[in-house]
């Protein structure tokens, strides 16, 4: 059945294939266009460099009027990522705009990796280390980069 949400997700997918942003990829799962798997590569010149972080994106029929639920499957040590992989990012909550597509979501999460917002912590240890002990922060991040190869 074609609904506005499904139609739009097909368009999002087509765009992602034709015009893929650097360092991110995503596709619907085999039998359900409402659930996607995605990968974000750790941005260069950040401690996340070389990491391959997997995510799931779950859409509802209200997409794009409501944001999808995005979650890291790979373990990510980051001030704005919860222990369960949930992401604290304004555009996925109160600043969501229906003009964002999957491509925009993934690139926003990618830039969140480079620029954490330690004032809105989902992982308070990561936030504290990011502010007060950058060396230890980077060490912990690099450990999850290595873990991401195995996952």
């Amino acid at each position: 059945m074609s609904t506005p949400a499904r139609r739009r997700l097909m368009r999002d997918f087509k765009r992602l294939q034709e015009d893929p942003p650097t360092g991110v990829s995503g596709a619907p799962t085999d039998n359900n266009i409402m659930i996607w798997n995605a990968v974000i590569f750790g941005p260069h010149d950040t401690p996340f460099e070389d990491g391959t972080f997997k995510l799931t994106i779950e859409f509802t029929e209200e997409y794009p009027n409501k944001p999808p639920t995005v979650r890291f499957v790979s373990k990510v040590f980051h001030p704005n990522v919860y222990a369960d992989g949930g992401i604290c990012l304004d555009i996925l909550q109160n600043r969501w705009s229906p003009t964002y597509d999957v491509s925009a979501i993934l690139t926003s999460i990618q830039s969140l990796l480079s620029d954490p917002n330690p004032n809105s912590p989902a992982n308070s240890t990561a936030a504290q280390l990011y502010k007060e002990n950058r060396r230890e922060y980077e060490k912990r991040v690099k450990a999850c980069v290595e873990q991401s190869f195995i996952d």
Binding site: A83, S120, P121, A122, N123, S124
Partner: peptide
């Protein structure tokens, strides 16, 4: 974006 400070790690 002001969120309530939280330390218990739950996804509020």
């Amino acid at each position: 974006m002001d969120k309530i400070e939280q330390n218990d790690g739950t996804n509020r």
